[in-house]
Write a protein that binds this DNA or RNA. Structure first.
Length: 777
DNA sequence: ATGGAGACCTTTTTT
DNA sequence: AGGTCTCCAT
């Protein structure tokens, strides 16, 4: 174990203060790149050197990755079982563990299943169908988000239904039945002995609220609480923390209000802004020295975030070198933007011998990745996209996990429905429907009917009944093995015995899915052989150092896991592509932030309120502060959106960067005037032919891209027209028809048309997205 | 039962 | 454009 002095010597003054202040409430405002994780881990290490019992320390994170990383780093600092024994994990996983132990008080069992978002949606779909509601009105996503935010605000379904304000909003939106759906949804989950993600927080609150002895127990257990990313907590999380910390007040929250970017998921920035109000005696430590980025980047980021009203004061600074100025580059189209980025990366690699993995290309929306990918492929630059479906959300993985879950919990309705006829075993949709109706009529579980159709006078033919019972028998045979076979043995048995493996093998195109199942089995093997982590019995507080690695243990662990192949990713030398959200917490030498355009970033959907715009600005702040050495912002004049070509204006955020940090000057005028400005020069002045040729094999989807609107005449006679330009009596120039006057317009957005009376060729009706009109000088 | 055509809808997404 | 969902035809 490291000595106390050593731990403290590696920290600056503010960091030391944050580390040593272990009693009483503390808020650490950690600016970007200020060594937040370092403080968190050193703080825990420090506490351990002070003789604090690791079992008394609770550290909550938002991601499994963050928890794992912290664990590893603490282990390196202090080593041994001490580090392992700190209760560290995501909000959801820690509370899931507690709820499994205490859930009987709320009418759940210790086999409690967690439904992920897909499961929730599937339940909702079936309820909406059962209620004969129009799925086009009751859009699953909308309904789920209503329910989710209610739960995050600790509103029960009944309170929701009885709240006039809420029901009136729903009614006004034409969805008066959401409250009823909510009630049924909860009932369905309860009946399945399942909780969704929000329930894990909601019921943890209920537990602490309604059972004083439980509250007392955990207040006593967790005498030191640390919360990472506090700015992203929602109300439910906030309340849990508040209740747990109420007795001892040893609560340390770490975060950065400037990096709060998850309001759309219920995160409430007020939690961090109001910490002082909640804990008047709280100490506040600000980590303001940035160790990551150049002065230009840090200063630009500071200047931008100043435009937000909701924030805590802090002045981030760095002693790093001044560095390159920020480049702003305009391209004619999204494809050219992508080519520019790829070419620049190539240049850097050649000139400065930079590895691929020091580059990141960031964007606001996932859809933007395609053009970038194609350009990188052309340039033969290895890349990896960080997005898409996580391993545990893949169909084949969910299928096999559904078998596991059903084995453990027969009442898990979603799992039952998922696998009852997959692989096909002659239990068709009609039979399943009848089972559902029958179960609802008798108010029993689907499983009960499947297991014993005759007991409930199920109205299907004998053959179907036999098949149902065969299925139930099969599952029960798995259940019987839970105590005798370890997770790997049973998992493998189920994979083969259920027919799942054969099903995947039979279809040659499913090879990847088969491999994924094999990978899952590998991970089960690893789990089975792994030395168990120290745990403790929630009920008795007894420390458990050994347990049988059974399937239910495995599922418990995997239920809330997302990342899988972190290890592989670490040494992968590839350019990284991801959304800005996904980039939070990461850093790269060279960052390209693409699509700096109005309506894309900031998103057109975030322009309604100041709060929304401020969140976009924080997102911009996060993006900028990812860069260590060099930041390049790109935007283009046209971009394909939803399949049609759109004109784009530079993002208003570009105007917020003081010119002294920008490589190429940018005139102050925003909006129209800024549109035609050229932003080239310096390092990026080199132009690349737009028909960049290589002798490589063509890109996967090598369809010829529609020719970009890039009219060379524009520079001579005027600027390209935007949709907003076109109105009655607007004077325009067309490369083929010459000058003319707009007579009238019809339609909106990409489909907007204009009737134009041309001086020489007469009246024409033009679809504006194709017309390449120019506003004459 | 199963698959193909067409309609529809697009932000971000730690669990 | 592209993915997902629905519905209809086979």
């Amino acid at each position: 174990m490291k000595e106390v002095e050593n731990i403290l010597n590696e920290l600056n003054t503010a960091q030391q203060e944050a580390v040593q202040c272990i009693d009483g409430p503390l808020m650490v405002i950690a600016g970007a790149g200020s060594g937040k994780t370092r403080v968190l881990t050193y703080r825990i290490a420090y506490m351990l050197t002070q003789g604090i019992d690791p079992f008394r320390i609770l550290a909550l994170t938002f991601t499994n990755k963050a928890a794992a990383e912290m664990k590893e780093r603490i282990f390196k600092l202090v080593g041994g079982s001490n580090a392992k024994s700190v209760i560290m994990g995501t909000f959801h996983s820690v509370f899931y563990r507690i709820l499994r132990a205490e859930g009987d008080k709320l009418g759940y069992t210790h086999n409690l299943t967690v439904y992920d978002t897909d499961d929730s949606k599937s339940v909702l779909r079936s309820i909406i169908k059962e209620m004969n509601l129009d799925p086009k009105v009751y859009v699953v996503n909308t309904v789920l988000s209503r329910i989710s935010s209610a739960k995050s605000s600790l509103l029960s379904a009944e309170e929701y239904a009885n709240n006039h304000e809420i029901t009136q909003i729903d009614a006004a939106n034409g969805r008066p039945h959401i409250a009823e759906i909510f009630i049924r949804y909860n009932r369905r989950l309860k009946n399945s002995d399942a909780m969704d993600f929000d329930d894990l927080l909601y019921y943890m609150n209920v537990l602490l609220r309604d059972f004083p002895e439980v509250l007392y127990k955990y207040q006593n257990r967790f005498q030191y609480i640390l919360v990472d990313e506090y700015q992203d907590t929602n109300y439910a999380q906030y309340m849990i923390i508040k209740k747990l910390a109420a007795a001892h007040q040893n609560i340390c929250v770490v975060g950065d209000d400037a990096q709060s970017i998850y309001a759309f998921r219920g995160a409430n920035i007020q939690n961090i802004l109001n910490f002082k109000r909640d804990y008047p005696t709280a100490r506040v430590v600000k980590l303001e020295q940035n160790y990551r980025s150049t002065q230009n980047i840090v200063n630009a980021a500071n200047a931008i975030i100043k435009n937000n009203k909701d924030q805590l004061f802090k002045e981030v600074w760095t002693s790093n070198e001044e560095g390159d100025r920020i480049s702003i580059v305009q391209s004619a189209s999204d494809n050219e933007e992508a080519q520019f980025v790829a070419n620049t990366i190539s240049d850097y690699k050649v000139n400065y011998h930079v590895d691929n993995n020091q580059f990141a290309i960031l964007y606001r929306t996932n859809a933007q990745s395609r053009a970038l990918e194609e350009a990188l492929i052309k340039r033969r630059i290895p890349y990896k996209i960080y997005a898409g479906v996580s391993f545990y959300k893949r169909k084949e993985i969910k299928d096999i996990l559904a078998y596991f879950r059903l084995t453990i919990n027969h009442y898990d309705e979603e799992s039952l429905r998922r696998v009852i006829n997959y692989p096909q075993r002659g239990i068709g949709a009609t039979t399943v429907e009848k089972v559902i109706i029958c179960a609802r009529e008798h108010k029993v579980h689907l499983w009960d009917v499947v297991d014993n159709p005759d007991a409930f006078q199920l109205d299907v033919n004998t053959a179907a009944k036999v098949k149902l019972q065969e299925f139930a028998t099969k599952i029960k045979s798995y259940t019987a093995m839970l105590q005798t076979s370890n997770a790997y043995d049973l998992g493998k048995h189920i994979a083969f015995n259920s027919g799942l493996i054969d099903e995947l093998k039979s279809d040659i195109t499913e090879k990847e899915r088969l491999e994924n199942v094999e990978e899952l089995l590998d991970s089960m093997k690893e789990f089975t052989e792994k030395e168990p982590e120290t745990s403790f019995n929630e009920e008795t507080g007894e420390i458990i150092t050994e347990y049988f690695p059974s399937l239910d243990r495995y599922v418990e662990n995997v239920a809330l896991l997302i990342d899988d192949d972190q290890e592989k990713e670490k040494d992968l030398d590839a350019v990284k592509l991801m959304t800005i959200h996904a980039a939070k917490g990461l850093e790269f030498d060279y960052v390209f932030l693409t699509g700096m355009e109005e309506n894309l970033f900031p998103s057109s959907l975030a322009l309604n309120t100041r709060q929304e715009l401020e969140e976009e600005r924080r997102l911009f702040y996060v993006a900028i502060t990812r860069a260590k050495k060099k930041l390049t912002l790109t935007h283009c004049k046209t971009r394909y959106k939803f399949g049609s070509l759109q004109f784009c204006e530079p993002s208003q955020f570009l105007d917020e960067i003081p010119e002294c940090y920008i490589k190429t000057t940018k005139k102050a005028s925003a909006g129209r005037g800024a549109f035609a400005q050229q932003r080239q020069g310096g390092l990026f002045s080199k132009s690349y032919p737009s028909t960049f040729t290589t002798n490589l094999k063509p890109v996967a989807s090598a369809q010829p891209k529609p020719k970009v609107i890039d009219n060379p005449l524009a520079a001579q006679v005027g600027r390209p027209a935007t949709l907003e330009d076109i109105e009655e009596d607007t004077r325009v120039y067309h490369s083929k028809f010459g000058y003319g006057m707009v007579v009238s317009t019809e339609g909106e957005g990409p489909e907007m048309k204009a009737i134009i009376n041309f001086d020489t060729v007469g009246t024409k009706t033009l679809l504006l997205k194709f017309a390449k009109l120019i506003i004459p000088n």
